[in-house]
Amino acid sequence: MAMTNTAAITTNKADIPDAVARTAVEWLLAWQMADEPSHIWLKICQWRQANSINEQAWQHIESINGQLACLAQSGTSHIAHQTISSPHTSRRQALKVLSAFIVVSGSSWLLARQQPWQHWTTDHYTGIGQQLRLTLEDGSEVFLNSSSAINIQFTATQRRIVLVKGEIYINSGKDNFGQSQFNNARPLVVEFAQGQAKPIGTRFAVRQFDNHSKVSVYQGKVALQGSKVSHTVIVNAGKQRTFSVDNDGAEHYGASQSVSESEAAWTQGMIVASDMRLQDFLNELSRHRIGIIQCAPKVADLKVSGTYPLKQVDKVLQSLTAALPIKISAFSRYWLRVLPVNDEY
């Protein structure tokens, strides 16, 4: 791109009249498309000299063409092209989405699920290895486990928490707002991909897996309901149930199983294992550490017991090698393998 004149830009581009802007772009294109550019260039120089606004307009074009030239270097131009024209949501759409969350948070979680930035637009989220504790306006305590996301929608008639991803533990509070204004408390509802859970004065956890959910109740009880039918199942204290919906829309409740308080130890930043299979233990640990932890089948059934801090996954792994006949081999920081201690690889 020829840069002949480097006079300072003093006119804001918004102040260049539309007609001048358009003419400048047309001159640029005529020059770039011409078989004999030098002929057009002379005319462009005349046009620029005719009027200081014309000159300013041309300066704006050249300053941006400098940036374009940086992208047009050999070998990189089509990367630039691909990146900029890749299908994405534009700023304007993003702004709409963002506003929608602030103004009408009604059903916006559905939208959030389909957006590539689903976690960014949720009200609260945690990355891998992070945990978050919130106190809601009704006094409910909510713990977000590693890599989880929720939206909170409190309206005049209900208190809704939408679990978009991961796991939450709730110690539900008493709602006073509803009682004073509408004479009855607003129900608390936790919504997840396959259905919803309504607690009755309780402590409980909901975990979202790829194709099912699990509700664990530590105190009180929770009514579990699928999104497509009205059939409700009550989960009592000390019990947990899985819940899934297959492709035909049929709902499946897993058998009721007992759950111990230690499963909620993550809310205290701990993992409590009692005769836990090594494979299961490592699966839990890997939720709190970026990367992969593989377990060799030969050692998968070894038993682990103890209380371990989730903040120091690498140290936990080290301590396991002292207690069990295993060793850890690292392909990279993000890819660990747990092997029998006498394994040659």
Partner: peptide, 19 residues
């Protein structure tokens, strides 16, 4: 880094235009 800076600048300037 420099490439990304330029990409972002041009992307912003073209924002809102049909693909």
């Amino acid at each position: 880094y420099l490439f990304l800076e330029s990409l972002l600048a041009i992307d912003k300037l073209l924002d809102g235009l049909p693909v």
